[in-house]
Simulated assay, not measured.
Amino acid sequence: MNLRSLFAAFYSIYLTVLGVLFKPLKAKNHLTLLVSFEENAQALIRSYKAHAESLSYEVTVLYTRHAVSLEKELEGLGSFYLNEKNPLHLVKAVSILFKSKAVITDNYFLLTSVLNRRPQTTCIQVWHANGSLKKFGLEDVTNQNRPASDISRFKKVYRSFDFVTVGSDAMADVFKKSFGIREGQLLKTGVPLTDVYYEENKPQLKRKWPKKIILYAPTFRDYDMQSFRLPFTEEQLTNELNGEYMLLVKLHPAVLNQISASFESESIKNVSDMRLHDLLKAADILITDYSSVPFEFALLNKPIFFFTYDLEEYDQKRGLIDNYTSVIPGKACHDSGALLEEMTKEQFNAEEMKRFSDKWNMYSNGDSSEALLKFAETKMKKRDEAPA
């Protein structure tokens, strides 16, 4: 067992002890959001504030360092910044979870494992993506190099999910394999983070950059966090693309913290601190790779290109879904030359993009946040009506 697995094992034991100590706590009409990505939480918070009068419960937000940008929207709500490595923070977090009749979370948190065998609390996983091009959970190819104790711990967390929200039948199949869940656990309310794409408003960022916008939003490589590759150079933007485009780069926070050298220039800007949905609405073109961003960008029916310079390596080390190249709405381009050729050779196929979006966003119709909050209300009322 390596040092990381050993630490996780002790972490899990500590949580188990806290679960025993706090077991007598009574769950109240309270919903807790356990958040590490801002998008779903932002949608749910806005919907809660809009419909609070018709809901019988209060909301508390537990958020990690990756979601600190939510702080400005937490006015009127209970909230707690959670440092998962702080033992006292974990005490507070378990107490909050146990006092809640419903918990909505957006990621793999070992913390939710304390909710196993706690029927008075419903745990709902919304996940941080409405589609997936890479394997995760029980399907993750790196699991073959992990000790059995790690896999057992993963399954313990997945067992804490009473329900998992899905935006499509395609993603439902992915979750069944990745989390080992059953059909009855799938909540077909759509994905909250997609609601914003149904709002009719003009992208404000267009005013900041008058040129056409290419947004580059790559996934992170956990086996190589110190580097990344841009799809185009300044020279290519100026010459091959005639100076018509700005290249905006949205990096994963884990990668951004590892990059020391600046890659910005007159036509290339680092926009990693800006909200994704604002950038996607403003973008004329998306370039990505194995990220889940295409699934929500497809709702806007604009061109997507795939810069997959390390396709074979990524598939081997991290794992892609079966038939990746036939699933994506476009061609996998191994270098900048192929990418430029794809961008300039033919017209955008809007029908192909719509088919892709309809497949992966079939249940996401603009009211997913409200539907999920109402579902939580229904579950709480059933708990109240159940015989003691």
Results as ranks from 00 to 15, higher is better:
Phe179Ala: 01
Asp169Val: 02
Thr219Cys: 05
Ser178Ala: 15
Arg4Ala: 12
Tyr245Trp: 15
Leu280Thr: 09
Val17Asp: 08
Thr344Gln: 15
Asp273Val: 06
Phe10Asn: 14
Glu313Phe: 06
Thr288Val: 09
Leu97Arg: 01
Lys359Asp: 01
Lys134Ile: 07
Ser364Ile: 07
Leu237Thr: 11
Thr344Phe: 07
Asp335His: 10
Cys333Tyr: 11
Lys177Val: 03
Leu74Asp: 01
Asp150Val: 11
Ala52Trp: 03
Asp278Gly: 04
Arg182Met: 03
Asn130Phe: 02
Pro192Glu: 10
Glu38Thr: 13
Asn323Tyr: 05
Glu370Ile: 03
Gly167Pro: 07
Ala338His: 11
Asp315Ser: 09
Tyr197Thr: 06
Leu339Trp: 13
Asn145Thr: 05
Pro210Ala: 08
Asn242Trp: 07
Thr194His: 11
Lys85Arg: 12
Glu312Thr: 04
Asn29Lys: 15
Leu138Ser: 01
Asp224Glu: 15
Asn29Arg: 15
Ala332Cys: 05
Pro294Gly: 05
Glu342Cys: 12
Leu62Tyr: 10
Pro329Ser: 08
Val327His: 07
Leu55Ser: 06
Ile13Ser: 14
Ser227Met: 00
Asp169Phe: 02
Arg118Met: 06
Gly319Arg: 07
Ala254Pro: 01
Glu240Pro: 04
Asn107Thr: 10
Glu346Thr: 13
Thr60Gly: 02
Ala9Met: 11
Leu62Lys: 09
Glu240Arg: 12
Val249Glu: 01
Asp310Phe: 13
Asn349Val: 09
Ser152Arg: 11
His277Pro: 01
Val255Trp: 01
His51Met: 06
Lys72Ile: 05
Pro147Met: 03
Ala217Lys: 03
Asn201Ile: 00
Ala52Leu: 07
Ala386Ile: 00
Tyr324Phe: 15
Asn83Leu: 05
Leu6Cys: 13
Phe232Ser: 10
Thr233Ala: 10
Ile151Phe: 04
Ile13Gly: 11
Asn29Gly: 12
Asp224Gly: 02
Asn83Trp: 06
Glu346Gln: 15
Ala52Asn: 07
Ala371Gly: 02
Val59Ser: 04
Ser149Tyr: 01
Glu377Pro: 09
Phe7Tyr: 15
Leu31Glu: 06
Leu280Val: 04
Pro24Asp: 04
Asn242Leu: 12
Arg182Trp: 00
Asn86Trp: 05
Gln204Pro: 00
Asp358Thr: 03
Leu21Ser: 08
Tyr197Trp: 09
Leu186Gly: 06
Arg275Ala: 13
Lys134Asp: 05
Asn2Ile: 03
Pro231Val: 09
Gly330Cys: 09
Glu342Arg: 07
Val191Met: 15
Lys23Ile: 02
Ile214Asp: 09
Glu200Arg: 14
Pro192Ala: 09
Leu241Glu: 13
Met353Arg: 13
Phe232Glu: 09
Asp162Ser: 06
Ile124Asn: 02
Lys269Val: 13
Ile45Cys: 03
Gln316Lys: 12
Glu199Asn: 07
Phe232Ala: 09
Val91Ser: 08
Phe98Ser: 01
Leu6Trp: 14
Glu296Pro: 06
Tyr216Asn: 08
Tyr81Asn: 02
Arg4Gln: 12
Asp150Glu: 10
Asn239Gln: 14
Ala350Asp: 12
Asn242Pro: 00
Ile104Asn: 04
Asp367Ser: 13
Met343Ser: 07
Ala282Pro: 05
Leu340Arg: 10
Leu25His: 04
Leu115Gln: 01
Leu286Gly: 07
Leu372Phe: 03
Cys123Phe: 00
Asn86Tyr: 03
Gly131Phe: 04
Ser56Cys: 12
Ala376Cys: 15
Gly190His: 01
Leu279Ala: 04
Val68Arg: 15
Lys155Thr: 06
Met1Leu: 09
